[in-house]
Every structure is written in structure tokens, then in C-alpha cells.
């Protein structure tokens, strides 16, 4: 940019203006407004309550509230389980579909379908599958003599049920990213390993995995942010219940904002989670820089 003169810079500014305006209206302004709300006692349903400045009271309430900390725990639990399985299964599938076998291209396309469905629809699909009385899942496990499981209506199973649906939807994402990375790897180191006689497991652990690392970290990061925000599937399947067994941070924010109508508390909770996500991002870039420096 050093050689761009002032006139060109002005022109560049003009071209950037629409984007900047859209960004401001759709992202920055709502965020600033939410920040403003987070310092106020703002109840949308009760205009008779004075919408006064309350300092950090909302943040204090959120951070000391049992339900919020509980929802945080649930969110990270769900994140841990879903990411683990999405990556184990997704990388496995990627290894499978990148084999040069007949029909793999078709299988790969089929496997991508869950990812292309809107999460709400995924929720509805799984609602049919989990439905206690008439669901497919219980029908099939009934065929092999297992008693019906109250998938989404018991505190023991509900989080598992949601994890299964989320794993089903997002494993293809991991598969796709990993498969693309696998195909860009040079084949020669593999041939070298074959000649040297390294076992498949050694080759996977010491040749494939380290080379996939940057891609896997990116995918992990994207999935982690998404998992942090998980909402749609839960909203459709359990709405956070039974009890508070599946109440994630997003559900908590929703409940504060649109059930109790406490927009201020909801906004404060949003900012707390924004900070958590930001910390995740920072850690991510730190680790990326580290692995880039090592090259």
C-alpha cells in the first residue's frame, strides 16, 4: 500500500463505503446497542419498569448465577463430546472417501447431505427419530429387544440425543475439510514410508496427522465456535429441557431475553460468551502462529 497515493486512497475509501456501511448496520451497531443494553435494566415486556443504568449489575448477576454457570458447563460438555466424535468419525470417513475405490465420489456427495440441511430441519428430522412413542430409533432398538429409551425426555439421555444429532449434522463438515486436505498431500512421502515399511498406524500418526494439523485446527476452531453457539437443534428437540439438562449458553440467553424479557441480562450474558469466544480465537491464532513459526 506504500505507493498508493492520496487520491487513490480516497477512491479506495469510496469503494469500501458500502461494505463498511452494511457492516456497521448489521454488526457493529447491533453490537454497540447490545453493549448499551447490557448496562441497563431493560425489560421489553414491562415498559413500566424504568430502563435505568445499572452499571455492572447484569454482568454480576450473570457471572454469579447458577443457571448461567450450569449452561456453560452443559455447553462445554456438549462441545467436548460432539467435537471429539465429529473429528474421529470425520477424519476416518475422509480417509475412507479419499481412497480410489469405485463409487467413492457418489458416497462422498451423499455423506455431505446432513451438512447442507438447515439445523432446524435437522432438529425436526431427529424429533421424528427420537419421538418417544412413535420414533424410528425406539422402533429399531425394539426389534432387537431393547426397551424404548426416552431419548429427549429424560435427563440422562437428552444431552446424548442432542450430541448424536449434532454429530450427524457436522461430521460431514470435518470430513469434507479433511478430505480436501488429504488430497492436497504429496503422495511421495507415503511411498517412502511404504518402502521403509512403516506401519499404517505409524504413517497415520506421524505422517498424515501432522500434515493435517493446520487444517484440523482450523476446522476445530470453526466447529468450536459453532458448537459454542448451538441453539437450533436444541430448541427444536428439547428447548433446554428436561429440567435444565440441555440448556446451553445460547438457550440461557434466549430464555433471559425472550422468556423473561430481560434484554439487559441477556445482552450481558451475550457479552460474557463473546469474551469466551474471543479468548478461544486468540488461543487459536496463537497456536497457528506457533505452528507457522515452526515451519
Amino acid at each position: 500500500m506504500g505507493y498508493v497515493n492520496r487520491r487513490n486512497r480516497t477512491i479506495a475509501g469510496v469503494f469500501l463505503l458500502p461494505t463498511a456501511a452494511v457492516l456497521f448496520l448489521t454488526t457493529i451497531y447491533p453490537m454497540l446497542y447490545a453493549l448499551y443494553l447490557s448496562f441497563r435494566n431493560y425489560d421489553l415486556a414491562k415498559p413500566f419498569i424504568p430502563r435505568i443504568f445499572v452499571g455492572l449489575a447484569n454482568f454480576q448477576e450473570v457471572l454469579t448465577s447458577g443457571p448461567f454457570l450450569h449452561s456453560m458447563l452443559i455447553t462445554f460438555k456438549l462441545m467436548g463430546v460432539t467435537l471429539f466424535f465429529q473429528f474421529v468419525i470425520g477424519v476416518g470417513l475422509a480417509l475412507l472417501v479419499t481412497q480410489r475405490l469405485p463409487g467413492m465420489a457418489a458416497i462422498r456427495t451423499l455423506l455431505l447431505i446432513p451438512m447442507m440441511i438447515s439445523p432446524v430441519i435437522v432438529g425436526l428430522v431427529w424429533l421424528f427419530i427420537y419421538f418417544p412413542e412413535l420414533g424410528y430409533f425406539n422402533y429399531f432398538i425394539g426389534l432387537i429387544g431393547i426397551n424404548p429409551i426416552p431419548w429427549i425426555t429424560s435427563t440422562q439421555w437428552a444431552l446424548t440425543a442432542i450430541a448424536i444429532a449434532d454429530i450427524w449434522q457436522w461430521t460431514p463438515f470435518v470430513m469434507m475439510g479433511t478430505a480436501a486436505a488429504l488430497q492436497s498431500l504429496s503422495p511421495e512421502p507415503y511411498e517412502a514410508a511404504r518402502i521403509d515399511g512403516n506401519s499404517n498406524i505409524d504413517v497415520f500418526l506421524h505422517v498424515t496427522l501432522p500434515q493435517l494439523k493446520p487444517v484440523l485446527i482450523s476446522l476445530l476452531f470453526l466447529r468450536a465456535i459453532d458448537a459454542f453457539k448451538i441453539y437450533d437443534i436444541i430448541f427444536v428437540l428439547t428447548k433446554g429441557g428436561p429440567g435444565d439438562a440441555t440448556e446451553t449458553i445460547a438457550l440461557y440467553i434466549y430464555r433471559q431475553s425472550f422468556t423473561f424479557w430481560r434484554m439487559g441480562v441477556g445482552a450481558a450474558a451475550s457479552f460474557v460468551s463473546l469474551i469466551i469466544i474471543s479468548v478461544l480465537i486468540t488461543l487459536f491464532f496463537k497456536s497457528m502462529q506457533k505452528s507457522a513459526a515452526a515451519r
Binding site: A45, G241, P242, G243, D244, A245, R255, F260
Partner: peptide, 22 residues
């Protein structure tokens, strides 16, 4: 006017009690 707080808080707490969580 705070019926929603009543309904929601009792909804969650009673549901937890019925599930054996409380």
C-alpha cells in the same frame, strides 16, 4: 405482570424435581 417468571422458573424447577435432579 411477572407471570412469565413464575411459569418459567417453576417450569424448570418442577421439571428438575420430577426428573430427580432436585
Amino acid at each position: 405482570p411477572f407471570y412469565a417468571d413464575v411459569e418459567e422458573n417453576f417450569g424448570v424447577e418442577l421439571s428438575k424435581y420430577m426428573a430427580g435432579e432436585t
